[in-house]
Structures are given as structure tokens and as C-alpha cells.
Design a protein around this nucleic acid. Structure first.
Length: 274
DNA sequence: GTAAACCTGGCA
DNA sequence: TGCCAGGTTTAC
């Protein structure tokens, strides 16, 4: 599920409700997520105050007052929601981790497929999961057409696979890469090394345009996604090509075509994207 | 560089 | 019943 815009939406909605609050109780109901939650997890969180809510790629980073960092990855189907005291006993399944805050509210991690995971680390930038990630696409100082142009050498991969590679650029997933390449007018199967220098500029600009639009609409809720207060996003109503096989291209009305690239469903306009 | 694996739920 | 799904790692 969650790509950069969804994770950023959780950060923005959940952050203000948890920053400054102390975690008074940690209830881990299932430890076998994508990776097991360690035995020391509860004790490193319990009694600590959350002092910041950040994001790197698709990871949520909650700073703790002792300098440690609680890292959460939502996998495909994870949600991290703030649940008020008044919510009572809303019983839902797959709630694997529940944090009780000092104000009586809870933060609930729900993840049916258990592809997500969480851990507490001393230094996030040294964490195995974060080291090696490519630049943040919304940071114009490090992600640009020039940067992409410099990555063309030595690869025969399709442009779509390159943009999905978290080492090249961090935070893009299947929905948004489809959308970005549509906006850029580039066919997902095109060899990355065949992009012109100008194409690279166009892709970088399209990336920022699509991500900013998606964040403005609070992410995409195709199936499970909910933000930090349990609300759906709105970008699914603004999709241009993703999951729109056979429907008219927003530009030229040619039916959107579907294919598979890198084992992932791929959508494009055969007329607008060359 | 490509394919299978992890796991559950929803839909045709 | 079978296939598909927003992600990432691991193995050929």
C-alpha cells in the first residue's frame, strides 16, 4: 500500500497527536511481522516521550526523548492510527501493536498481511533498512534531471524498474511510478539508458508534480490505506492511468493499456507515452 | 536481471 | 477456485 505520499500523510496526521506525549504502555500482540519484533522492543519504548515525527522514504521515524528512534514500515497493508479514548472497544482484527499514551489515547498498528515491521534503533541513518536508500524525490538539491542522467550508464533496465528501485530514488512505488511516467509521456518499458537528458528533466519534474498532488489529496486509498486518524485518502479519484485499463486516456481518450513490467501491473497510454 | 517468497483478504 | 493487490528480500 503505502508509498511516499501515504507515509507522509500518516506523518502529518499522526505527528501532532503523538509528539510531546509519553508512551505509558506497549502491547505487542503479534511479534511475527515481516521481521520479528525484538524482545527488548517494549522496554525501549515504555516510559519514553515522543519528541518528533519524521519520514525517510516509506519509513516513519519517531524520535524519542532518549535519542533513540522508533521506526515503522507499513508494508503493503499496514496502518498506524491514533484512536481516541472515546472510541471505546472497536474490535478489529490484525491489530498487532498498541501503544497507550499518557493522555489515554492509543496508537494502533494494524497490518493484515504482516509485510510491515517496526524496531527501535539508536541511529536511524545507520540502520540497515535506511542505509543505501537513494535521494528523497522531493528534495530538489539531490534529486534532479542531472542526477537521473548520471544514473543512465551501465544499466539495461526499463525506466519503470529503475524508478521503483529504492536505491535510485526513495519512496516511489507501483501506483506513483505509473502516474509519473504518464505525466512524463514516457512508456514504462523504455530502456532507462535511452532517456535523453531532457527526458530526465521531465521525469524529475513529473515525479515532484505527482507526489505533491498525491500528498495534497492525502494519499491513495485503493484498498486498505488510512491516515493517522483513520481517514481515507483522495488521490484514487484523481488517478490518471493506474488501474484504469480500457478507460480513456485523460489526454487523448485512447484506451489505457495494461501490461506487466518487473512482475508489477503497469498501465500506460499507447499514444501519449513513447 | 528476473522470479519466487513472505501473508491475508477481496473479487471475478 | 484462482488470481490479484500499494513492498521488500532472497535465491537462481
Amino acid at each position: 500500500m503505502p508509498e511516499l505520499p501515504e507515509v507522509e500523510t500518516v506523518r502529518r496526521s499522526l505527528g501532532p497527536l503523538v509528539v510531546g506525549r509519553q508512551i505509558v504502555e506497549v502491547d505487542v500482540r503479534r511479534r511475527d511481522l515481516r521481521w520479528n519484533i525484538t524482545d527488548t522492543f517494549e522496554s525501549t519504548l515504555q516510559g519514553r516521550r515522543i519528541v518528533s515525527a519524521g519520514r525517510r522514504a516509506k519509513y516513519l521515524l519517531f524520535g524519542l526523548e532518549d535519542g533513540n528512534c522508533w521506526i515503522v514500515h507499513l508494508g503493503m497493508s499496514g496502518t498506524l492510527c491514533h484512536v481516541g479514548t472515546g472510541a471505546g472497544a472497536v474490535t478489529t482484527s490484525h491489530e498487532h501493536v498498541v501503544l497507550m499514551l499518557e493522555d489515554g489515547n492509543r496508537v494502533v498498528y494494524r497490518d493484515p498481511r504482516r509485510f510491515g515491521f517496526m524496531l527501535v534503533v539508536e541511529e536511524p541513518s545507520a540502520c540497515d533498512h535506511l542505509v543505501g536508500l537513494g535521494p528523497e524525490p522531493l528534495d530538489e538539491d539531490v534529486f534532479s534531471g542531472a542526477y537521473l542522467a548520471g544514473m543512465r550508464r551501465g544499466t539495461r533496465r526499463a525506466v519503470k524498474n529503475v524508478l521503483m528501485d529504492q536505491c535510485v530514488v526513495a519512496g516511489l512505488g507501483n501506483i506513483y511510478v505509473n502516474e509519473i511516467l504518464f505525466v512524463a509521456g514516457i512508456r514504462p518499458t523504455r530502456a532507462f539508458r535511452r532517456l535523453s537528458r531532457r527526458d530526465c528533466d521531465v521525469v524529475a519534474d513529473a515525479t515532484r508534480e505527482v507526489l505533491n498532488e498525491a500528498i495534497a489529496h492525502r494519499g491513495t486509498s485503493m484498498h486498505d490505506f488510512l491516515d493517522g486518524i483513520g481517514e481515507k485518502g483522495g488521490y484514487q479519484w484523481r488517478r490518471l492511468v493506474y488501474d484504469r485499463e480500457g478507460q480513456p486516456c485523460p489526454n487523448c481518450a485512447t484506451p489505457v493499456r495494461a501490461c506487466s513490467v518487473g512482475q508489477r501491473s503497469t498501465f500506460y497510454c499507447p499514444r501519449c507515452q513513447k
